[in-house]
């Protein structure tokens, strides 16, 4: 099976129109009211924290199912691709490749419906020229930043009301609420895509190792055995759960993408299931 061209693949898929329960964040805080500009699109099952004002009581009376109405979100026609350029993204060759493919693919998938703006985040943030996405190798893009997304200063690069897609591994110390709020600031819709290598999701026992953090250079000597790996996996799960919960609460989208899967599988799998992509 030949290697998939992410740009060609992007012509098969397109970005779905974002939806949300009318106005206000989901979760355990109440929403701030309905927006008249929202166009009804779909139903979904009620989840704890949804605004009770959007529950379709008539449907409840008919079906005994508590559902909320979803409305087409009124957002800008601009997509902002925020790409994490930290060193850890280049830690494993597979991870770096998948990250590049994903960037090109999403750019290609969004181009037909949106104006796409790429932003590279590191110690410094700067816009990525459109031509860069025409080459899957992303020429001129180097994953060498030692600062994490949490420390990125976007300045005036981000615009309000955009569909903002952040691609990172999110493997840096953070508070989920603060991070999501920081990334969501001003965005019409926030999509968080976590790209992880198999070595990060399923590490194998390797005996005594000196674990060295790529960005900070900090290290720790550990016997990487089954028990240590189990504890690592629990912490990773906790990190992912925290971000997913916070994203759901703030009506953002969260998906974890494993580099073990091909780009085609990722598009048809987690990206489509998360509602980010629909076939053309």
């Amino acid at each position: 099976m030949g290697k998939t061209d992410p740009i060609q693949l992007g012509k098969i898929w397109r970005l779905a129109k974002p939806t949300r329960p009318a106005s206000g964040p989901a979760g355990n805080q109440l929403g701030k009211g309905t927006g008249a500009s929202l166009e009804f699109q779909d139903y979904r099952e009620y989840q704890a924290g949804d605004d009770l004002r959007h529950v379709d009581w008539q449907a409840y009376a008919r079906t005994d199912q508590v559902s909320v109405r979803l409305y087409q979100e009124e957002i800008s026609t601009t997509v902002e691709l925020i790409l994490d350029a930290s060193l850890s993204m280049d830690l494993w060759p597979n991870k770096a490749n998948r990250w590049r493919e994903l960037c090109c693919f999403l750019h290609a998938a969004a181009t037909s419906d949106y104006t796409v703006r790429g932003v590279l985040a590191g110690e410094r943030t700067f816009p990525i020229p459109r031509e860069t996405f025409q080459d899957p190798a992303l020429p001129g893009i180097h994953l060498e930043a030692k600062a994490s997304l949490a420390d990125a200063n976007f300045g005036g690069l981000l615009r309000p009301g955009t569909l903002r897609i952040v691609i990172s591994d999110f493997l840096f110390p953070h508070h989920p609420s603060t991070l999501v709020a920081q990334l969501q600031k001003g965005a019409g819709k926030l999509i968080l895509l976590q790209v992880l290598d198999a070595e990060e999701t399923q590490p194998s026992p390797r005996g005594h190792l000196r674990l060295q953090e790529t960005e900070s250079g900090r290290h720790r000597d550990l016997p990487v055995d089954e028990s240590v790996i189990q504890r690592y996996k629990k912490r990773l799960q906790r990190l992912q759960n925290g971000l997913a919960e916070e994203a759901r609460r703030k009506n953002a989208m969260w998906a974890t993408l494993s580099c073990k899967s091909s780009l085609m599988d990722l598009a048809a799998g987690p990206l489509q299931q998360a509602g980010l992509l629909v076939p053309r």
Binding site: D169, F172, E200, L209, E213, R220, P223, V228, L236, L239
Partner: peptide, 17 residues
């Protein structure tokens, strides 16, 4: 110890060890 690069050392840090 053999050097092994990781992205998030905080996930590995283990007070039990």
């Amino acid at each position: 110890h053999q050097n092994f690069p990781v992205a998030g050392l905080f996930l590995w840090e283990d007070t039990q060890f």
